[in-house]
């Protein structure tokens, strides 16, 4: 083989080998479920799974960006709830739909940006800054609504949950768009390049003229913005915005990201992997429901799959070297 071709192959494997590992895990899981339940492999169930995966998977995109920079964002679930109730109350007060949506997204972006500033300007560890935001955003959401859910929205707004584009649920289409854009941003743009560089070696990035503070803040802002987008979809789906929505979503999002091969140390990871990770979790939950497995055993299975997936991923990574 010509050396060029060997290089190309190496390149392909090093870029996609790990996702292929996770993807084959997803396929294997699906095969098992297909064998066990006649209801699993139907068009309606697959769309059902995709729809159920949308919210966590969109939150997980933001998480992937943050984790690639070597950080973590524990506030995504609370920010989701906060954006949701602000948008919902705007809708109920008769604010035009685009403005209401913008208010929800704006709240998400603002919370994320505050996280970013606390981390970059305030020099707080991301874990602490976002832990604080997790509580502040949750509390503000509860205070804002006096603890009560806000529900009942127009059909126009509910389109996000009930609408279809070419027979595919609108929320799934939105999710696909988010992933396409995120993939492009990470692979092809300056922002993406800098995101990896900051996570790979923050000091080297700084010394190479990367505006580390600005870009890190931007990345946390993106995570907040995507929580806001997820809030729109969740609120439409439940026809209700709850101040207690999104609890533990941060952990699901982290799990999806890590299963997808993103290193918690930063500098590495892809959104394609994260999508597969989010789908693995959704397929697993769906399959366990279809099979009527008790909720206690479900938790054991899900936890075990997370551990096994990451173990396999690490083994593949070691072999990759």
């Amino acid at each position: 083989m010509r050396p060029g071709r060997i290089a190309l192959r190496q390149n392909f494997l090093s870029h996609y080998g790990r996702q292929l590992g996770t993807l084959s895990g997803l396929v294997a899981l699906s095969l098992v479920l297909w064998a066990l339940s006649p209801h699993f492999l139907t068009v309606s169930n697959l769309l059902n799974i995709a729809e159920q995966a949308t919210i966590i998977s969109i939150v997980a995109v933001g998480m992937t960006f943050v984790i690639i920079t070597g950080g973590i964002d524990l506030s995504v679930g609370s920010v989701l709830a906060f954006s949701g109730v602000v948008m919902a109350s705007a809708l109920q007060r008769g604010v035009p739909l685009p403005l209401a949506l913008a208010s929800g997204l704006g709240v998400g972006l603002a919370c994320g940006a505050v996280n970013g500033l606390l981390i970059t300007v305030g020099r707080l560890p991301p874990f602490i800054a976002t832990l604080g935001m997790m509580s502040v955003a949750r509390g503000t959401a509860l205070m804002f609504t006096e603890g009560r859910p806000i529900s009942g929205f127009s059909e126009n707004f509910r389109w996000f949950a009930t609408g279809e584009v070419l027979r595919v649920p609108a929320s799934v289409v939105i999710m696909i768009c988010v992933y396409a854009v995120a993939h492009f941003v990470l692979r092809r743009t300056k922002l993406g390049r800098y995101t990896y560089a900051i996570g790979g070696n923050e000091e080297a990035a700084l010394l190479s003229g990367v505006g580390v503070r600005a870009y890190k803040t931007l990345v946390y802002g993106i995570a907040g913005l995507l929580s806001g987008l997820a809030a729109i979809l969740l609120t439409a789906r439940l026809n209700s915005a709850q101040p207690i929505a999104g609890m533990m979503y941060e952990l699901d999002a982290i799990a999806a990201t890590v299963i997808g091969g993103t290193s918690l140390l930063g500098g590495e990871g892809t959104v394609a992997g994260t999508l597969v990770g989010a789908l693995i979790m959704a397929v697993l939950r769906n399959g366990l429901n279809l099979l009527g497995v008790s909720s206690f055993i479900q938790q054991i299975v899900i936890g075990s799959v997370i551990i096994v997936a990451v173990l396999i991923d690490m083994a593949l990574k070691r072999r990759g070297k």
Binding site: Y196, N201, E203, A204, G267, E268
Partner: peptide, 9 residues
Amino acid sequence: KGQGLVLPL
């Protein structure tokens, strides 16, 4: 390694 290069890139 600490300041010059981003090793995973």
